[in-house]
């Protein structure tokens, strides 16, 4: 019994570690400036956790096997204050150290403002789609009104045609951005909470109705990446998905032109 229990704990431990060590299921390659730091921080946390996991589980497995009942008496000890102090201080240093190291990425994502030349894109969630709006050549987003929000009339965002700034706004179901150019995302929602998630950017941010949440990133590789919704938003939650299309500057300019509203 003792041997079997120790063995099972050891096998579970090693099997779990195998999955992580050999990256059987893993992140996709990153495409944003946060990616390298993110993957590094993950690696460090994984190593710390891996060591603790391995030692604690195998320690447990060993103790279970080694100290099985052999008909004697247990050692009569109520503890050891030196050991208590040691592992308290050691875990405090390790855990808090890991926590503090990771804050650099967080600071870059959320405390640093977007670069001044960042391209602003507004992303609005609704049940069950993403709407992406570009300000157009004037660089300004037009006014929107809830009473105009009719996807049946092709105006899901309720862009007010009476506002001159809205004339050149481009509204798309997918998000195209030029490669290597800073982008600032203004996240909103029309109805319930959604969450904007791009794995390759290593970014996620809730789109909360009544609020405007911001994110900024620079995509370093062209390609097509999925934007699933990551916050439960209703029955179509699992189908709510858009694409991030990272293009060359040239392609991006063409794409924007193709999709620009026809002058009236």
């Amino acid at each position: 019994m003792a041997f079997l229990l120790g063995l099972v704990i050891a096998i579970i431990t090693l099997a779990t570690m195998y999955g992580f060590a050999f990256k059987v299921w893993w992140f996709p390659a990153f495409i944003s400036e946060y990616g390298a730091a993110y993957d590094h921080q993950f690696q460090i946390t994984l190593i710390v956790c891996g060591i603790v996991f391995f030692l604690a589980q195998l320690g447990l497995a060993y103790a279970v096997w080694r100290y099985r009942d052999r008909g004697g008496r247990g050692s009569y000890s109520h503890g050891n204050n030196v050991m208590e102090a040691t592992w308290t201080i050691a875990t405090a240093i390790v855990f808090l150290g890991v926590a503090l190291m990771g804050q650099k990425i967080w600071a870059r994502v959320h405390l640093d403002a977007a670069p001044a030349n960042a391209l602003q894109v507004e992303v609005t969630g609704q049940q069950f789609a993403w709407n992406v709006r570009y300000p157009g050549p004037d660089g300004k987003f037009g006014r929107t009104k809830p009473e105009l929000m009719k996807e049946s009339l092709g105006n899901p965002l309720g862009v007010d045609p009476d506002d001159p700034a809205s004339k050149d706004d481009v509204v798309m179901p997918v998000m195209a951005v030029p490669v290597n150019r800073p982008v600032e995302v203004l996240l909103r929602s029309k109805d319930v909470i959604h969450s904007f998630y791009v794995r390759e950017l290593r970014l996620k941010q809730d789109a909360v109705p009544g609020m405007e949440n911001r994110l900024h990133f620079t995509a370093s590789q062209t390609g097509r990446f999925e934007i699933p919704c990551a916050e439960l938003c209703g029955l179509g939650h699992h189908q709510m998905r858009s694409f991030l299309l990272v293009m060359s500057e040239e392609d991006y300019a063409n794409w924007l032109k193709e999709n620009a509203p026809q002058a009236q």
Partner: peptide, 22 residues
């Protein structure tokens, strides 16, 4: 032990950028 250690990932806001709600 198994369940507690994964909290070390999720307790960091930066790593949570990927793992939150997964």
């Amino acid at each position: 032990v198994s369940g507690g250690l994964s909290g070390l990932f999720l307790g960091q806001p930066s790593l949570d950028l990927y793992f939150h709600d997964t």
